[in-house]
Design a protein around this nucleic acid. Structure first.
Lengths: 234, 234
DNA sequence: TCAAAAGTGTTGCCGATACACCCATGG
DNA sequence: CCATGGGTGTATCGGCAACACTTTTGA
C-alpha cells in the first residue's frame, strides 16, 4: 500500500589514536566509516553504510549485518537513533525512502583490523567530507546522543577491552566529551556508580606506580542501556 | 525491494479530570485514545491509532493526520518515539509491518471536545485494556519518555491554555509524575528556568489571595524541544 | 633520588529540599 | 476575622569541582 521503501543505516563509532607513530601515541579521537556512493543520487559522495531491510530481518539485525558487511566488525553497543522519512530528503525528485538509523560502538582494538577498501574509508568525526542525503544532520545527532549517553550510562565500556585502568576509561570519556576530566573526581564518580569492579590485578611495565585493573560489572548488561532496556524486565 | 510495509502510529496523551462532578473536580489523570480493531490480527482488541504512510507524507505529518482523524484534534506537541519492526510483533504469521511511533500531547480543554465513537474510546493511562500487537510495550515506553521529558523541558505547557497559574502548572507536573511537589520550590524552579513570564494579570474569583497568571515564554518554540530541535538552528 | 602518574583527603560552593512565615482575598 | 492557598525567606544537606597531598613504581 505504502509507496515508500525502507532502509536501515548505521553510524559506526570507533575511538582510535590518530598518531602516526606507535599504537598508544597521540590523542584518541572518534572515527567513523563511510561508503562512497556509486549511483545517483549523490553519485561519488560519501554516505553512511546501510541498505534495504530484508523481509525476515529485524531492524537491529539489519543494522548489525550492515556493520559486518562494511567493516567486518561486530558492534559492542547498538541503539536505534531515529527514523528519517521526510519527502525530499533524498534529493529533489528521487524516490521516497524512509531510513531507520542506528548508531553503534566498536572496540578500539578490533577497529584497527577493520576492513577498508576503495569504497569504504574511516574519517575523524569532526573532519567529515560533504555527505550525501541528510547524513550530515544524522551524524550530528548521533554524536549528540553519544556524548549525552556517555555521561549517564556505562556505554564507554564498549570502546575498551575486558580489563582496563581508570586512566584508560577516563581517556575514553575525554575523547568523547572533548574536554579534560579531573582524575581524582573521575575515579570517585566511577567507583560510586558501581559500574566497575576491581580485578585485583595491576598493570605493570609502566614507569610509575602500577595502576589497578578494572572490569565492567557484569551484573548489568550493556544491551539493557538502550531505550527499551528498562522495560524489558518481564 | 523490501517486502515490508510501513505504518505510523501515535500515542496521544491528554490530561483530564476524572471527576464525575464539575469540570475542575477530582484528580487530573493521563488519558489516551485507542481504536478498536475491526480485522485480523487482533480483531476486536484495542490498539493505538495509526495507518499506512502516504507516499507524499512526512512521518510527523502522518502522525498528525492520524491524530486528527481519530480525535479531531491538533497536537500541541509531537515527537517521534521509536521505530518498531521486529518480525513477529504483528502476531505469528502476519505480514511484516514496521511502525514508526510518535507520541503527542493535546490540550486539556480541547480534549473535552474530542470525538468519540463506537470504535474510538479514551482510557486512563494506568488502566488500559489488553492491547493488540506490542502496543502495551509501546505505551509504557511513551509514558516513560513523557515523565522524563517533563522534568527537563517545558512540554508541560502543552496541557494548558494560553494563561495559567503556577498552581495549575504544578498540577500538571504532579499528575504526570505521580507525586506531590512543594509549591514554594516548584515556583522557584520554574521561574529560574525562564520558561514562563508574568502576564501581569491575576486570576480573581477564588476565595483566597488571587494568583498571578503566567504565559509561556514565546522566545522558545515548543517544536524545538524535540530530539532534532537543538540541531535545527541553521 | 627524581619524575610521573596512581590514588586519597579536604575544602568550599551551589543547587535542591524542607519548612517557617507573611500576604491577600472571599466568605 | 478566619480559613485558604499564594508567595517569600532561610537553614540545612549532599553532591561536585578544585586542588593539596601522599604513594609507588621505573629509570
Amino acid at each position: 500500500m505504502a509507496e515508500v521503501s525502507l532502509a536501515v543505516s548505521t553510524v559506526i563509532f570507533a575511538l582510535r589514536s590518530s598518531g602516526r607513530f606507535g599504537d598508544d601515541e597521540g590523542q584518541r579521537r572518534l572515527w567513523l566509516p563511510l561508503v562512497r556512493r556509486i549511483r545517483e543520487p549523490f553519485d561519488g559522495r560519501w554516505a553512511l553504510p546501510g541498505g534495504p531491510l530484508g523481509s525476515d530481518e529485524g531492524l537491529a539485525e539489519a543494522a548489525t549485518s550492515t556493520l559486518a558487511k562494511t567493516t567486518g566488525l561486530a558492534p559492542r553497543y547498538l541503539e536505534q537513533l531515529y527514523a528519517f522519512g521526510d519527502p525530499g530528503r533524498s534529493g529533489e525528485d528521487a524516490s521516497r525512502v524512509v531510513s531507520v538509523v542506528y548508531w553503534a560502538l566498536v572496540g578500539d582494538d578490533e577497529a584497527k583490523a577493520a576492513r577498508v577498501g576503495q569504497n569504504v574509508r574511516w574519517f575523524p568525526a569532526d573532519e567529515l567530507p560533504p555527505l550525501a542525503f541528510d547524513h550530515q544532520l544524522v551524524v550530528e545527532y548521533a554524536l549528540w546522543r553519544l556524548r549525552n549517553k556517555v555521561e549517564y550510562s556505562r556505554i564507554a565500556s564498549a570502546f575498551l577491552g575486558a580489563a582496563f585502568t581508570l586512566a584508560q576509561l577516563r581517556e575514553v570519556y575525554e575523547a568523547v566529551l572533548g574536554r579534560a576530566l579531573d582524575p581524582a573526581n573521575f575515579r570517585r564518580q566511577i567507583e560510586a556508580s558501581g559500574a566497575v569492579e576491581d580485578t585485583g590485578e595491576v598493570l605493570t611495565g609502566v614507569r610509575h606506580r602500577p595502576p589497578r585493573l578494572y572490569r565492567y560489572n557484569s551484573t548489568v548488561d550493556l544491551a539493557d542501556q538502550g531505550p527499551l532496556g528498562r522495560l524489558a524486565q518481564k
